[in-house]
């Protein structure tokens, strides 16, 4: 085959262009594959002058395997009472049967996983269409219904939009517990003040991911800064369809779910 100089340049140029495009896209292709390392990349803490609610937490329902490591890590990291009725985060299991019945459970808030026999006997004879896990935590809403109701202003949004409770100020009236549509708050039985997920505020302000994100073996929990276009959360929000829980309530949640099924609430 005889190739003229003109043709050689033409083909070579095309190939070179293609190679450059593929090469430049390669790192992002790699990041798209959810290696835990890629997921754990968190932008540095915002400086006090940077105002704005840019932190997002993403839960990928498709990836969660219901191992409960996040629940355990949270309890250990944040000294949450170990009893199953006190949780900053928990995992729910959804089972949808062929006759469209939706069954939900969360034995021990999911801390022991879902493999024990006693957790599964009830599903043995069911005609199951599909099943998945839904990790839950405080949604750190931009319009938090729990904050305005506090009679003493002990629960508040930080400048970054993280919703916290001041343990020294909380009077334990529990109006915020009533106001939260997600069941994310509880009264700490030891201090008699309200407690909730802080997104591990002590960690994220140092550039570390929340404990539950750190330990998730499958990268189902992702935390990061929307201002960084290369952060894992930015990429997921760009590339996936995300949803929030109970959008009709209008809280403007900052926890987004990937693979959110109708009926999850």
């Amino acid at each position: 085959m005889k190739v003229s100089r003109r043709q050689f340049i033409k083909i070579g140029g095309k190939n070179l262009l293609g190679a450059i495009i593929i090469w430049s896209a390669f790192p992002s292709l790699l990041q798209g594959v959810s290696s835990p390392e890629a997921v754990r990349k968190v932008s540095p803490a915002p400086t006090p002058t940077q105002r704005g609610h840019y932190w997002r937490f993403i839960v990928d329902i498709r990836k969660c395997i219901g191992c409960g490591k996040c629940v355990k890590a949270c309890k250990l990291e944040n000294d949450v009472p170990l009893e199953p009725e006190y949780n900053r985060t928990w995992v729910e299991r959804y089972v949808i049967t062929e006759n469209e019945e939706i069954l939900v459970d969360s034995p021990n808030a999911g801390i022991d996983g879902f493999t024990a026999d006693y957790m599964n006997i009830k599903y043995r004879n069911l005609d199951i269409r599909k099943s998945f896990f839904v990790p839950k935590l405080c949604n750190h809403c931009d319009k938090p219904p729990c904050v305005p109701v506090c009679p003493v202003g002990a629960t508040y949004a930080t400048k970054e939009g993280v919703i916290l409770v001041d343990r020294k100020g909380c009077i334990g009236c529990r109006y915020c517990v009533q106001a939260c549509p997600y069941g994310a708050r509880f009264l700490d039985p030891r201090l008699k003040v309200v407690d909730k997920c802080t997104w591990c505020y002590h960690r994220i302000t140092k550039g570390l991911p929340p404990a539950c994100v750190e330990v998730c073996p499958v990268g189902a929990r992702v935390f990061g800064d929307l201002r960084d276009p290369e952060s894992a959360v930015s990429k997921i929000i760009r590339e996936e369809t995300v949803g929030i829980l109970k959008p009709e309530i209008g809280c403007e949640n900052k926890v987004y779910y990937v693979g959110l099924e109708e009926g999850v609430r």
């Binding site: 109701v149 202003g153 009236c173 529990r174 008699k192």
Partner: peptide, 20 residues
């Protein structure tokens, strides 16, 4: 109240947007 000793906080530093 979980912390009845803080009840007076409602007078001293009320969060006025709270109905309570």
């Amino acid at each position: 109240l979980g912390r009845p000793e803080r009840a007076l906080e409602m007078f001293l530093r009320p969060n006025l947007v709270s109905a309570m």
